[in-house]
């Protein structure tokens, strides 16, 4: 596989840029072996940000992408889609967390910038080992089983059945209703439980 990594450093408004020198991160990233392109942008997750990513992939013939922004738990899927829209496999992409795990927890600009650079270097070296992965699919049997016939089970079974799907409701006692049928009136409305 060719090594042409694109690095995109997000300012996140001032969330990242106020602590991390994103320009310096991008400039340093350009010197990392394998990196063909590096830039910064105010909001990478925004529409123009994603557009920037897509066009850069095509213009610079990028083969791998690294986005340094917020936590991957937040936007990994967003960028994976954008990378795919740019024409390369979504798994040839890594995210660097320089917000939650850098700019938001450190205040020393020098140290935080150095950390961001290290993390970008880490992601670049990882992404060079990434392989394209394919999402496969499995069939779904459109029938549900609900185990337990108390209020919870009955409500779930009814809702699924009302949506037009088959439901098997299994109850260990000889009657459904569960503990609720043993109750008298219920708070706060004092209506009957059955």
């Amino acid at each position: 596989m060719k090594k042409r990594v694109g690095v995109f450093v997000c300012d996140c408004g001032t969330n990242i840029a106020s602590v991390v020198d994103t320009e310096k991160v991008a400039e340093t990233a350009k010197k990392i072996p394998g990196v063909a392109f590096a830039t910064t942008y105010k909001y990478m997750c925004s529409d123009p940000g994603q557009e920037l990513l897509r066009t850069a992939i095509q213009e610079h013939k990028l083969e791998q992408v690294v986005v340094a922004s917020c936590s991957p738990r937040m936007h990994e899927k967003t960028f994976r889609k954008a990378v795919e829209a740019g024409g390369i496999n979504g798994y040839l992409f890594e995210m660097v967390n320089i917000r939650e795990q850098d700019s938001w927890v450190h205040h020393d600009r020098g140290q935080a910038t150095q950390k961001a650079i290290d993390l970008v270097r880490m992601a670049v070296s990882k992404v060079l080992h990434n392989k394209p992965l394919q999402i496969s699919s499995i069939p779904v049997r459109k029938k549900a089983m609900v185990i337990g016939g108390g209020i919870a089970g009955m409500q779930a079974a009814l809702d699924i059945a009302e949506a037009g799907h088959q439901v098997v409701l299994v109850e260990k006692e000889a009657s459904i209703g569960g503990k609720m049928t043993q109750l008298d009136k219920t708070f706060p409305t004092m209506d009957c439980a059955a």
Binding site: S71, V105, H107, D108
Partner: peptide, 21 residues
């Protein structure tokens, strides 16, 4: 996720730490 949460709460810790997911 906890490290993210620390970030959300802006809980500062030494910058020498590097996290691998």
């Amino acid at each position: 996720a906890a490290a993210d949460l620390a970030g959300l709460n802006h809980l500062e810790y030494p910058a020498e730490v590097r996290i691998i997911r």
